[in-house]
Design a protein around this nucleic acid. Structure first.
Length: 202
DNA sequence: CTACCGATTGACT
DNA sequence: GTCAATCGGTAGA
């Protein structure tokens, strides 16, 4: 199992490309309790000033500074009293990011079951806030460098062995502005994807 | 200080 | 399918 973090160049690109290519990669979390994580199966892109739904579309404020920083860092924010994890994309100064919406649990499943208080695999990390609870991601992870390979990082998933992935593009979930844009990506037929009955457009 | 909001979730019909 | 609890962050008084 290769756990080498994806390089910064991976993130310093068009968010739509990054969102799609993050599918099938391995999200990893190291805490004193041990290692846990899984395969990324669902993402959403938020496109800086050209996207009204992006938290940074109207400039910098106290909580969105991470999005203006270097690519490959974490942007963690709270919504409805729950935490959500993003990976910052594009060159520094362009505030775009990819919301990691769901993973398929693979590593440290017992740890995640304990934190989520359920044994149901499908409920461990299906949805951005469940994912953060399972991986103990909170304000302390904001600005974390995802290319450092410590605490929190994303690596190529060697267990896929080059298996071709079928990805589907749809509208983002829960977004109230710019809701018609197709900026959500997920793995076709994967049981660990959140939401239901999304319209399939490619 | 208070009022309001939300890139959610889980419980419910 | 619907709906409301959720609570920290922020803006504004």
């Amino acid at each position: 199992m290769t756990l080498i973090p994806l390089p910064r160049d991976f993130y310093a690109r068009d968010p739509v490309i990054v969102a799609r290519e993050l599918l099938g990669q391995r999200l990893l979390r190291e805490t004193p309790a041990g290692l846990c994580g899984g395969r990324i199966v669902e993402t959403e892109a938020y496109l800086s000033s050209r996207d009204p739904a992006c938290h940074a579309s109207r400039g910098m404020n106290r909580k969105n500074t991470a999005m203006f920083g270097p690519p490959g860092h974490a942007y963690v924010y709270m919504i409805h009293a729950r935490w959500c994890l993003n990976a910052v994309t594009e060159p520094e100064g362009i505030p775009s990011a990819i919301l990691i919406r769901a993973i398929e649990p693979l590593d440290g499943i017992d740890l995640m079951q304990e934190r989520r208080r359920t044994d149901v695999l499908r409920d461990l990390a299906r949805g951005p806030a469940r994912l953060c609870e399972a991986l103990v991601i909170n304000r302390a992870a904001n600005h974390c460098d995802l290319t450092a390979g410590r605490e929190l990082w994303i690596a190529e998933d060697a267990s896929l062995n080059g298996t071709p992935l079928r990805t589907i593009r749809s509208a983002r979930i829960g977004v109230t502005s710019a809701h018609r844009r197709l900026l959500r990506f997920y793995l076709a037929g994967n049981a660990f994807v959140s939401g239901r009955g999304q319209r399939v457009l490619r």
